[in-house]
Design a protein around this nucleic acid. Structure first.
Lengths: 149, 149
DNA sequence: ATAGCTGCAAATGCTTTGCAAGGCC
DNA sequence: GGCCTTGCAAAGCATTTGCAGCTAT
């Protein structure tokens, strides 16, 4: 199991032309071996710090940027300071819980279809949809909380 | 004309409970007297610096934050470092030109309808849609650049 | 009068970079 | 061997904050 993943990650890196190093393999494993993930550099650093020979924070930043440039992950449009990355690179939607800084995907079946023409002289490089959520206090009725745009 | 705007801005501030000051009036005028705008703190600072007695950069930051808290402007979900604010506070869509850091609204007629239920225990506080654009080099065909999500 | 603003400069937080040492092909 | 990566520390931005002085109410 470890071996299979390990080889898969190695191939992932080779395919995009990134040299295979211990640090990059470790980061790739954290990112890609447990399904879709939404991460920040700090978050990944925290996770890897628990392991043996963790990469430095600078390396995490650099690696995430490299991965994003090569299309292995994609940057997410979000509010405020931190940069988030998503292992799912195609267009899809996000719920964002502001209070707790949690980010998660919309279930596939809720994603609406839309077709938008690119302005002349441009092409669409990506779409981000962020639906900002507020936690309801217990009193408030959870009814009719529906987005219309 | 100046007088009418001036009074309108004064009322805007009073309505949300912000003390009416020269600096806030100046910023409100920049923001609200020429239709919808998308701005960064630095951008506004640049504009106001050309005028007499410009507010300090810190005041621009603080004022934008205050305005956002009071609902006069809204923060936009975007990639990377800078925070953008929009004078249009309702849900709507944006095109973002990465090369030149330009941000503009989708024409109303292109905005698709969608209805998304909020997860239990939450309510939808806002929706951001960002369509990232790349400028086409002259060779590339401008055909079929259409977003499907 | 006094609570709230402003401006400056310093502090903070996230991210990048320069450079010397180490690792991959 | 040579080039790419890494790690550390330092630098770089965008943004916030502390505080002394000012101002709207």
């Amino acid at each position: 199991m470890f071996c299979k993943d390990h080889i898969a990650m190695r191939e992932k890196l080779e395919q995009v032309g990134l040299r295979v190093t211990r640090q990059r393999l470790m980061i790739a494993n954290l990112l890609f071996s447990k399904g879709d993930r939404h991460v920040t550099a700090e978050g990944l650093f925290g996770e890897s710090s628990a392991m043996a020979y963790p990469p430095s924070l600078a390396t995490i930043y650099n690696t995430l940027r490299d991965f994003a440039e090569k299309g292995l992950v994609r940057e997410i449009a979000l509010y405020g300071g931190k940069v988030w990355f998503d292992t799912q690179t195609g267009p899809h939607f996000h719920f964002y819980l502001e209070d707790s800084e949690e980010l998660f995907d919309l279930p596939e079946e809720l994603i609406p279809q839309f077709n938008i023409p690119a302005p002349p002289g441009t092409r669409i490089a990506g779409i981000d949809v962020v639906i900002k959520l507020e936690r309801l206090s217990d009193q408030e009725t959870p009814s009719s909380s529906t987005a219309a745009a």
